[in-house]
């Protein structure tokens, strides 16, 4: 057994265990922390595949931004998850049934798995010598998949518009930041000097 496969099993076992803890942990903060652990292990798996760019993106974007945001929301909202999980068992029979059906399907699918000789060309991903995978991803994204890349940009634009439309309220009595006004303030308008006689107060 090589070192690589040893690490593969290490990362995989921890990943699956952490993923299980995400859904079973009682405390939501613990769940998010386990999610971060799962992300780190997934990043490790990417590294083993030689996709160091994806590994770094996973750590920076998911751990650095998304999971921290999750943690922040979980801490701010103080959602009582035990209360939310009430009645969870009620749906267990039907949910379990669907789960078992899906599992049987997967077993059937994997049992029928054969690799056709003409498909090997796809599995055998072309690694071009002398090109780092960051550059390789960039080339693919901006040439072959430029259409999908732009479409993803449009999806994000719609998400942004949606978030603003649905959440931004214009309240008249809120003090807003107005940088030019704030910078233009001078001591004459901002500070009021009062002449106070000693021993008397304002």
């Amino acid at each position: 057994m090589t070192v690589a496969s040893l690490f593969f099993y290490l990362f995989s076992v921890v990943l699956v265990g952490a993923a299980f803890m995400v859904i079973s942990a009682r405390n939501p903060v613990h769940a998010v922390l386990f999610l971060i652990l799962a992300f780190f292990n997934a990043a490790g798996l990417f590294l083993l595949l030689g996709a160091e760019f994806l590994a770094m993106i996973l750590v920076i974007v998911y751990v650095g931004a998304v999971a921290v945001l999750f943690l922040f929301v979980v801490m701010m909202l103080d959602v009582d998850f035990t209360e939310l999980k009430q009645g969870f068992l009620q749906y267990l029979p039907i949910g379990g049934l669907i789960g078992i059906l899906l599992f049987i399907e997967l077993v059937m699918v994997l049992g029928a798995w054969t690799i056709a000789p003409e498909i090997v060309r796809v599995v055998d991903a072309p690694v071009i010598a002398g090109i780092e995978n960051t550059e390789a991803i960039g080339r693919l994204m901006y040439t072959k998949y430029v259409y999908l890349f732009q479409a993803a940009g449009m999806v994000l634009l719609v998400a942004m518009i949606g978030a603003i439309v649905l959440t931004l309220h214009h309240k008249p009595n809120v003090k807003r930041q107005n940088i030019s006004d704030q910078v233009a303030r001078d001591p004459k308008t901002a500070v009021e000097l009062k002449d106070i006689k000693p021993g008397q107060g304002v």
Partner: peptide
């Protein structure tokens, strides 16, 4: 997804 996301909003 582009269509659905806009429709949800």
């Amino acid at each position: 997804e582009l269509q659905s996301l806009a429709l949800y909003v």
